[in-house]
Design a protein around this nucleic acid. Structure first.
Lengths: 136, 136
DNA sequence: TTTAATGTATACTATATTTGTCTGGTTTTA
DNA sequence: TAAAACCAGACAAATATAGTATACATTAAA
């Protein structure tokens, strides 16, 4: 029931990029040093964020990264799902075959967890990176 | 960001016991078969639930388990924490030294995650096993 | 009082996941 | 063309998960 380290790094990397304009490019080494993220691991994480359309990358000399859209359009949920894939606090919520009882939607636990997960997703989706930078 | 299998099994085991009176003892094999939980694994999980005061055990012939308190006093959170330990959606929320930036409470991400976690704990704590059995 | 049916305790193991690293590219600018 | 960046995928170590095994303790009933 825990976010993984990669997600935590991703939050910080995106938050860092938020400080710069969408046109300003920051290279991986700077992000890695400032946010204390292992460089190679950061590169890998960034690729997930690119695939999700959260950041853009620029290759070659003076290359680096910048946000692919305004920070108010990037939520914690966006970043989380980019790194970890879809949230499912219980496997059965997405893969009913994993409930060995095959109760699927009739299972009362399933139903409650479903509601709890909805709230969680809602909370994560209602926090964007423009808000986050307001009170740094 | 996922409950583990043991927790899922624990939910089902407690839900199963809820069907029986507090004085009625159900043995592990019955629970394991009915809820399709690997027997030995169930025994291990039950010990966590015992330590947390959620179930009682009876040894010897005709031994087994029963709830240690009324189902309305057992929440999803109780069971979850009995099995997995305290919830921390991000390590930094409990162990600040894990934030390599040492921002601790000044970190805006930390603050937001803290709020999200509070909501989650609240949701988990507001669902008890008496409610869960109402609509089986 | 012995025996069988239980749970207890702890160590062990296999697998999956996490958290990276490594090697060898490709792209871009000067 | 050379250097500075990122890309892609394989690899690897550490940790966590999901169970299993062995030996033991307790209890009820014959």
């Amino acid at each position: 029931m825990q976010l993984n380290q990669a997600t935590d790094y991703a939050f910080r990397a995106v938050l860092y990029l938020t400080r710069f304009g969408s046109e300003e490019v920051v290279n991986a080494q700077v992000i890695a040093e400032k946010e204390e993220i292992p460089m190679r691991f950061l590169l890998k994480i960034m690729r997930s964020l690119i695939k999700a359309g959260i950041v853009k990358s620029y290759r070659g000399v003076d290359g680096g990264y910048s946000l692919a859209k305004p920070p108010q359009d990037i939520t914690l949920l966006d970043v989380l799902e980019a790194v970890e894939g879809p949230v499912k606090i219980n496997r059965c919520l997405i893969e009913p075959e994993y409930c060995s009882k095959k109760w699927a939607n009739h299972c009362p636990i399933h139903q409650v967890l479903n509601g709890i997960q909805s709230n969680l997703l809602n909370d994560l989706a209602s926090c964007n990176f423009a808000q986050l930078t307001e009170n740094i």
